[in-house]
Design a protein around this nucleic acid. Structure first.
Length: 202
DNA sequence: AACATTTGCAACCGCGTGCTG
DNA sequence: ACAGCACGCGGTTGCAAATGT
């Protein structure tokens, strides 16, 4: 176990490996996390012998090494779900990924940016009149779907606002963390509330 | 075949939040 | 109450592979 001052020294000096992970590094990291668990990533980074920063180790483990990761071949059902959830949640990739078992937020985000966003934007432009109204309706239902950053930035304004604030937190509404295992049927039923035909968006 | 451009994805970075001493 | 640390999240970048000229 490396002492804390050693960790800080490395952190300051930035003596870490960067770039693509080698199979050797993967092996070391997965072996270490199997024994010691996936937590305290700065310690993992030092003691696993990979010479990476904690952040890098965490990301690698989350996106590749952790059990039950599904990679590639996003099915039509998954694609459809991503589009619907994105329409509902915006760029809240973690929440979206939480509805797709084995998929990571990074993968969903990349897939959206490289495949789906272009298609959606293209078709939304063409069929703008079709898509606009339902989106407005959605915003009425969930008035404040924002990014974490936007929420924190806007909080200052909300605090100084004298208007009555309805005690509704969209984050609570969208918090799936207390639910059990993934339930595709539940999500699909929920999304059916959205009366937009997905084919009109893509 | 050679070069330029585009695409897809892994990884990095900055910032915010929550916990702990 | 405060500072430092650990972690999570979303945006962005870098680069290899694929495709076009």
């Amino acid at each position: 176990m490396a002492p804390k001052n050693v960790e800080r020294k490395l952190e300051k000096k930035k003596e870490y490996n960067k770039g693509a992970w080698t199979s050797e590094e993967d092996k070391k990291l997965s072996q270490y996390t199997q024994i010691h668990g996936a937590k305290r990533w700065n310690t993992v980074a030092i003691n696993s012998g990979v010479n990476r920063c904690g952040k890098s180790c965490r990301l690698r483990w989350l996106n590749y090494l952790r059990p039950n990761i599904k990679r590639g071949n996003i099915s039509e059902d998954e694609e459809d779900l991503i589009i619907r959830l994105h329409k509902l949640l915006g760029n809240r990739w973690v929440l979206i990924a939480g509805r797709l078992p084995g998929r990571t937020d990074n993968e969903i985000k990349n897939y959206w940016n490289s495949h789906l966003s272009k298609r959606v934007i293209k078709n939304t432009t063409v069929k703008n009149h079709v898509a606009q109204e339902p989106i407005k309706e959605q915003q009425k239902l969930i008035p404040n779907v924002q990014t974490q950053r936007e929420l924190s930035q806007s909080r200052t304004h909300e605090d100084t606002n004298n208007d009555t604030i309805i005690p509704f937190d969209p984050n609570d509404f969208l918090d799936f963390s207390l639910e059990g295992t993934f339930d595709l049927e539940w999500v699909n039923n929920f999304i059916k509330l959205d009366n937009v035909d997905i084919d009109k968006l893509i």
